[in-house]
């Protein structure tokens, strides 16, 4: 428990800022909705003139814009992007910072096994992600309730919203596994941002090329808001893929971390 408490403590400020950023961005995007709704026809014409690739990149599916929930699905693309960066940062940083800041000697010569250290850090990370989602989901629910006078499908809303947490879990474990495979992570941001934007680019490419195989490669494509809006359920094969990535990530991280040489400073 002491490592868990310590991790929560040292991550408190950063996590608070991330929660503000994710909720703030989502809120601002949602605040545009009444405006767009008022001039819907003009917006649709305007957006239809966008090249398909740009539309794909921005997550615009114009047919969905007419309902608040549809617009929410669009806004969600950006929430997910930010959520992915938060989760990836956590994943890449949570173990590697001990080596980078040279505190690994301190922690690892204490009577704890590396497995216990990793487990405590995972618990702390998932607490942070859970709290982020616990702030985000009710906030969006309240906003949508306001826009639609309570007339929207809660199930669809929840399916879209919970995919944030699932996707973050996938990004987190990719980051974690990468950090244990790399010999040394000199700085978290270049690694995590680099990977997130790589996945984001692949995601855009998967949409424009309509190549479904590419969708397996990027966690941004495991839960598609427009699909959920239309079908009211997740796409099973991508859920399985997500779970598989998480499992491999956990296994690889535990395996690598338990045998990793901690070099002298």
């Amino acid at each position: 428990m002491n490592i868990y408490r310590h991790e929560i403590r040292v991550n408190l400020l950063t996590s608070f800022l991330w929660i503000c950023a994710i909720c703030g961005i989502s809120m601002i995007l949602m605040l545009f909705y009444p405006m767009i709704k008022a001039d819907m026809d003009e917006y649709l014409v305007f957006l239809d003139n966008f090249p398909p690739a740009v539309k794909a990149l921005m997550g615009i599916v114009t047919e969905n814009f007419s309902s608040p929930l549809g617009y929410y699905g669009f806004a969600f693309t950006y929430t997910l992007l930010f959520g992915a960066i938060q989760a990836m940062n956590l994943g890449v940083g949570i173990l590697s910072k001990e080596e980078r800041e040279k505190t690994a000697d301190f922690l690892m010569t204490k009577p704890v096994t590396r497995l216990e250290i990793l487990t405590a850090k995972l618990a702390a990370s998932f607490t942070i992600l859970a709290v982020t989602n616990a702030c985000y989901v009710p906030l969006m629910y309240l906003m949508l309730t306001g826009y639609a006078d309570g007339e929207f499908e809660t199930k669809t809303f929840l399916l879209i919203s919970f995919s944030l947490f699932f996707s973050q879990a996938v990004f987190f474990f990719i980051g974690l596994a990468v950090s244990t495979v790399l010999k040394k992570v000199r700085a978290v941001l270049p690694v995590s941002l680099g990977m997130v934007f790589m996945f984001f680019a692949i995601s855009a490419f998967a949409v424009t090329s309509k190549d479904d195989r590419l969708r397996f490669v990027t966690p941004f494509q495991y839960f598609k808001a427009d699909y959920i809006l239309a079908e009211k359920h997740y796409e099973m094969e991508y859920v399985v893929m997500g779970v598989a990535v998480i499992m491999v990530g956990i296994a690889l991280s535990y395996f690598r971390y338990s045998r990793k040489d901690i070099q002298a400073v």
Partner: peptide, 28 residues
Amino acid sequence: REIAKRVGYLPSEVFYYEGMKVRELLNY
């Protein structure tokens, strides 16, 4: 893990969590 309970280690260069007070670090 068992060994660490009975071993005290002083590294040649000490690095600790910045932003912590000495007391907090020692209590941790």
